[in-house]
Write a protein that binds this DNA or RNA. Structure first.
Lengths: 233, 233
DNA sequence: TCAAAAGTGTTCACTGTACACCCATGG
DNA sequence: CCATGGGTGTACAGTGAACACTTTTGA
């Protein structure tokens, strides 16, 4: 490669975009921000951050998780979506956004933590207009999650350690954007043998009727992951 | 963004990588090259090309199709896989490879054309060691094609206008990397109503027994594509 | 006593899969 | 006459989808 070519081609910026899905037991939400700098000051965006040439995109995603919701945990489920590469995405120059999505269990603390840092949690089905091509990125992320949820038990990343079947079903309904039959859902979940009764129940003060709590069988999950796909909805 | 930041971040090169799948009626193949320049002179690679900051990645893919196999056709099926972004992919600097795959119907002419231009067609299941992370890219592409083939009738992009059921089945077997039952396959294909008997048959000189030729019902295909997924294998 | 959510089985249609033989033709 | 590949139907199991009532308990 000639020096001229080097100057021509090594002239692109790289950034990581993050579609952060959070589930609070009832609602599936996505974290967005109001931009505080140019370009598009004041517009809404998903979390995005430039990547220095000697830093990995995945590292920047971890940094964003730490900065945006205060989570410093390597076990958060993160997966690349694809690159968004349109020429005129950004007025500063050619910026390639390599988009990722991540799944987190929301607690009131995490929600507040993100809001303290100027984040906004918006419902999965009520995404406002965003800057750049970020709406397109979110659509792509939602499709990916729909597909993953149908095939792999990634839903467990979004739930607390112990959860009720109703919470699990609610999550699947939100992610797939359709109602599921309660009896069929339970049959399917129990047949998968991926969840185990913990023996605990919900706090009687919180609900009208106590519900059994379950946890996820990690061993079975590992085997299933290795084998490939299963767990269809 | 400060000028210092601009200098720091706008320092990455962008390239399009292409996993080109071709089917000749019997074998599913991938096109690779022997590299003629540094770095890794002499190593095998998939077609890749730097993208100038004012050019779209998709455009570069079209250019590669033209340069590598002499096909100048906007109807070739092309889809982005994802970005391959490791920091030390390339000794010249940070190069982000946005990988695509494309599907083409191979004729002896196209195969020879590509070979004239130094291309090598390797069988889907006999991929040699490649430079950079190109083996990883091909693995990812194969997984994507497997999934797509199961869900959408993209197989038709790899076949000539008129084809036999045996050719179609052979393609599916190669792509999915397993044998399929002849009767079940025919049942499934005919039930999908996606193919139409043309009334023509194969040339009696070519085969021991003539076989009916079919074509693909584009109208039904459009409807099916819009509706979403179907056509499971 | 009523509203709200937990929990529980059966039936039917469809789809995937396993499986074997006859026919036409060229060598 | 035989090797090759085209073409055809049935039976069984498993899964998806539709569907309604009882129980518990807090308000």
């Amino acid at each position: 490669m000639t020096p001229q070519e080097k100057e021509l081609y090594f002239n692109v910026a790289l950034c990581s975009g993050l579609v952060l899905f959070g589930f609070d037991g009832e609602e599936l939400k996505i974290l967005i921000y109001r931009k505080k700098d140019d370009p598009y000051r004041g517009a809404l965006t998903i979390p995005s951050k430039y990547v220095a040439p000697d830093t990995s995109n995945e590292c920047v995603v971890q940094t964003m998780l730490k900065e945006n919701i205060g989570i410093d945990d390597k076990n958060i489920y993160v997966e690349q979506l694809k690159a968004f590469v349109k020429v005129f995405r950004n007025p500063l120059g050619r910026v390639v956004n390599v988009a990722y999505y991540a799944l987190v269990k929301l607690t009131p603390e995490i929600e507040k933590e993100a809001e303290k840092r100027n984040g906004l949690w918006v419902k999965y089905n009520e995404i406002p207009d965003l800057a750049f091509d970020h709406n397109e990125i979110i659509s792509y992320a939602k499709e990916r999650v729909k597909r993953r949820v149908k095939r792999r038990p990634i839903g467990f990343h979004l739930l607390p350690k112990e959860f009720t079947i109703a919470q699990l079903q609610s999550l699947y309904e939100k992610a797939l954007d359709r109602e599921l039959d309660k009896r069929n859902f339970r049959k399917k979940i129990f047949n998968s043998n991926l969840i185990i009764e913990t023996g605990n129940t919900t706090d009687p003060k919180e609900y009208r009727k106590v519900a059994k709590l379950y946890r996820f069988d990690e061993e079975k999950f590992e085997k299933l992951s290795l084998k490939g796909y299963d767990f269809l909805f």
